[in-house]
Simulated scan of single mutants.
Amino acid sequence: MSIPNIWHHRKVADNSAKGCEICFKPSTSVLVTPDKQDFFYVCPAHLKDRGFCSPIIDHDAVAAAKKKKEMDEEVERLKKEYEEKQRKKKEKEAEKEKDKDKDKEQEKDKKESKGKNDEKDEKKEDSTSNTKNQPDVEEEPRVFALQRLGIHLNL
């Protein structure tokens, strides 16, 4: 019975690290067969080596994840637009209710508070844009196929 050439990448706890089967350095990365009958420890650097293994990419899952990400971005953009429209609508209603005398005094207060709020909003937008630009840990390949060795023994 032969083992299929499909290996799933898993991480173990730091205190469970064992030596890599190739370079013997401590590693928390493990390649496991789908039925969990066989496993071996390997360094993450070896997983990037195309001579050792190649990732098996599920194109349907990648496309679905990309579509979901685009949908989430669109929803976020629409939420911001809606909140901006609601804020403007409330401002217009507030202006209609105020008298001219009160309007002048409150406009000064609003300008000061808007300046502070705008600065806070800009800081929030900057922090959210920074988190979106960071790569996800889950984008790494999770399934690999080991390469055949070109070594033939003549016995």
Rank of each mutant, 00 (worst) to 15 (best):
S129G: 01
A45L: 12
V32P: 01
R87I: 06
K89G: 10
L153F: 14
L78F: 08
K114M: 08
I57Y: 00
D99R: 09
K92F: 07
R50L: 07
K88P: 02
K108E: 12
R50Q: 12
R87S: 14
G19Q: 12
V32A: 03
D49C: 02
D99Y: 09
L78E: 13
V12A: 04
P4W: 01
K25A: 07
V30C: 00
P4L: 11
E76Q: 12
L153C: 08
L146H: 05
E73D: 12
D109S: 04
T131N: 04
E105G: 02
Q147M: 13
A65I: 01
D58P: 00
L146Q: 09
D109T: 02
K80L: 13
A45C: 10
Q106C: 00
A65K: 10
G19K: 13
S127T: 06
E21I: 11
I151N: 08
Q86F: 10
N5S: 01
S16T: 06
K69P: 00
E91N: 04
S113N: 09
K11G: 03
T33C: 06
K124A: 15
S129Q: 15
P135V: 01
G115T: 09
H8G: 01
D109V: 03
A45T: 14
E139F: 00
H8Y: 11
I3A: 09
E95W: 06
K85M: 14
A45E: 15
G150R: 15
I56R: 14
D136S: 06
K102F: 06
V30R: 07
D136A: 05
K18S: 08
E70W: 01
T128E: 15
G51I: 01
P135I: 03
A61Q: 09
K25C: 02
Q147F: 02
E125M: 04
L153I: 13
K108D: 04
S127K: 13
H9E: 12
E97S: 13
K98E: 15
N117W: 10
A94R: 09
K110S: 05
F144H: 06
E119R: 14
P55F: 03
K36I: 06
Q134V: 04
E76H: 08
K90H: 12
K69A: 11
K25T: 04
G115E: 15
K116I: 11
C43T: 10
A64N: 08
Q106H: 07
H9K: 14
F39I: 02
I56D: 03
H59N: 10
H46P: 02
N5M: 06
D103Q: 12
N15C: 05
S129V: 02
D103L: 07
P141S: 11
E119S: 14
E125Y: 05
I151Y: 05
G150P: 07
E21M: 08
A94T: 05
A145M: 13
G150F: 07
I56V: 15
D72N: 11
F144D: 06
A64I: 05
T131G: 00
W7L: 03
Q37C: 07
D118W: 08
